[in-house]
Design a protein around this nucleic acid. Structure first.
Lengths: 132, 132
DNA sequence: CTTGACCCTATAGGGGCTACAGCCTTTATG
DNA sequence: CATAAAGGCTGTAGCCCCTATAGGGTCAAG
């Protein structure tokens, strides 16, 4: 199995530039090159990139992905570390949802207070302005 | 009323650098300067920056804030444009909440599938990895 | 008269890509 | 076999929205 960067990017739904970016920041190892200096990937790299993409889709930061990768390489290690990262991330997601809901409530209130007319009468602007 | 950039930044809970940044990108007008080349703000600038911050807190993008500002300057104009921007933003917020909830469900499922053990047995890693 | 708090500009960095520009290599077609 | 299109390569700049320096100048208090 020999894949070009384009093959890999299609297979993982990742832009080519993103693959190179991941390599540059050390998230993916530098692959061997062909005689024409093309990156030459195999099954292992495909798996690793899929892992990265899946974790990213679940909202893990690149640093968290890096940590997950290095933990997952140690097959005999306790999986508590992995659990910790995942739960920490879950907490972040919960906080974000709560924040957005609060924001939504406030925004909705601002919008609902306005029933048209000119800008001078607009409650949205009034609600945004401090004392005016 | 004569305010330094520091006064303004305290009054609006904005970092000094951020105020200068807003000026640089044209969100705030360039204020007059003192003889010592300090920015010299008044009531109007305080109001405008408060508006910007409030809108930002509600999650409007800088472009949206810019639009809101220019609409709000036209006091005789219909406020439909303002309503449109606000509702468009509400839609974005709703989409974000929905996306995060979906993500949360998936993440939770991944986490719940694991009941400890070594990394080799860890369902979190398994759920992230593609085939293997 | 000096200390320290504040101000000034200009520039770089962050996260996580994305998008060029300006080349070289491979593959498909005439 | 020649060529053109598609894809690869490096390097760098841009996106959003600030934030954080470095290296200076100004001002009020002691």
């Amino acid at each position: 199995m020999s894949l070009t960067i384009g093959d890999l990017s299609k297979a993982t739904n990742t832009k080519v530039e993103t693959v190179r970016y991941y390599e540059r920041i050390g998230l993916l190892p530098k692959p061997p090159r062909t005689s024409g200096n093309y990156r030459n990937y195999g099954e292992a790299e495909l798996g690793r990139l899929s892992f990265v993409r899946r974790a990213r889709d679940l909202g893990f930061s690149l640093d968290q992905v890096r940590a997950l990768l290095s933990l997952s390489d140690d097959r005999d290690c306790d999986c508590a570390g992995i659990d910790r990262i995942a739960n920490e991330h879950l907490g972040e997601v919960d906080r974000k949802i709560a924040d957005l809901k609060a924001l939504r409530r406030e925004l909705k209130a601002v919008i609902d207070s306005c029933d048209g007319g000119t800008v001078a009468e607009c409650r949205i602007i009034e609600a945004l302005a401090p004392r005016g």
